[in-house]
Write a protein that binds this DNA or RNA. Sequence first.
RNA 1: GGAGGGAUAGCGAAGUUGGCCGUAACGCGCUCGUCUCGAAAACGAGUUACCGGUUAAUAACCGGUACGUGGGUUCAAAUCCCACUCCCUCCGCCA
Length: 424
Amino acid sequence: MIDLKLAQKQPEFLSTALADRQCDLNVTDFLALDARRRKLLAEVESLKNKLNTASADVARQKREGQSITEAQTRLGELSSTIKELDVQTAEANDAVETWLLRVPNIPHSSVPVGRDETANTEAHRFGIPRAFDFDPKKHGELGGALGGLDFKRAARMTGSRFVVTLGWAAHLERALVNFFLDIHTQNNGYTETGVPYMVNRAAVIGTGQLPKFEEDLFRLRDRDYYLVPTAEVPLTNLHAAEVLDEEYLPLAYCAATPCFRSEAGNAGKDTHGLIRMHQFTKIELVRFAHPDDSMNQLELMCGHASRLLELLGLPYRVITLCTGDMGFSAAKTYDIEVWMPAQRTYREISSCSNCTDFQARRANIRCKPKGGKAVFAHTLNGSGLPVGRALAAILENYQQKDGGVRLPKALVPYMDGMECIEPV
RNA sequence: GGAGGGAUAGCGAAGUUGGCCGUAACGCGCUCGUCUCGAAAACGAGUUACCGGUUAAUAACCGGUACGUGGGUUCAAAUCCCACUCCCUCCGCCA
């Protein structure tokens, strides 16, 4: 959530920022809503002042043994007037709140302005895509042929966009989870965390997926619980409603969880293989930072995520998303894209964002120096990395002419010494 | 699922015959001061957040709201009533 004061005091700035983000909310209309809210508030507050003062008089009169029946009837009317006005004020408050909850974060000044992904800029690049002396296969075909990925049986027991992994593929998923977590906990200082895979509505509002993106989430029928679309939700909400001691910042957490996404708006997009599943496993990184330090923390975290690809020997590039392409809660986002030989293109494998105080304001996460005043902390999140997409990238980049797949050296110890997935 | 207890500031905790009890007793923490070469200890003072008005001001001032959440009763609710959430203890069931 953005700061209400920003809308009140710099409406033109906000309008421009929203336009840059391809968001069509109207700030002028909002200011009218807010003006109405303030007018009602001023009115009802002065009546409440009257009632409070009069009630204190009643208390005094009663103590002195005077009759209070006249005052009671008179104040009864005032009291019910206040009740009616209170209802209107609450409605006006809701209108303001509802609007604010649908406003995306303000882009950071370093973010390129543009309407869609064509305005994204490349920050840097690692590795040289391997030259193949044969036609590289798509990971879905490879994985299927090697007996590791079974989309058909998953579809039978559940539906489309689910997968069953078997044998080496299931082992490789487990290896990747352990490898990623080990690097983050041992080299990068993250605290490994086990979190609920279902969260309540307040948590999902806190990170910004709600109220705007209800259709992307799986919700339980009989409880107000949602399946986590990413561990960003439980990890960021870890410190919801807390005041963090500034000297302990930054705080860094990682968690491997399944992620559940209905992908309602993406029917037919990127349907091949493991790329866009309803359920996938991902290791998520979340950091809580001091406002002055959060942009540095973003660079750091993005480095943590991309380092994994280097360790796996996978070529990638880092893209700075432009204003029109960023997610709702982000002030700045780097996408890391891994080389996918079968499509001869880089595909998103990680998204690292600084959400500044946007989520912190929604989830009420503050930080405070010793003896000082609390301010909203900054929250950051990044994928480090999704297991399915990493597995897909390994299959495609390390495939051999005979249909087998060599394994990256870093994973061999995690695969009980297996160096190669032999063709069947 | 059943029975009982609980939720009050950054933390602990007092307050339930309704009314100067919310800038919320008391304690811890934190800030400032005294003492000290310095520190600790001791002593003294200070320290809720948010919203609205006013304002150049996120200063001062005035007002409002908040005692888990949402309702209700009342001139007036931390206090009485109803529903719900979470935590603790015990019982039952269970991986």
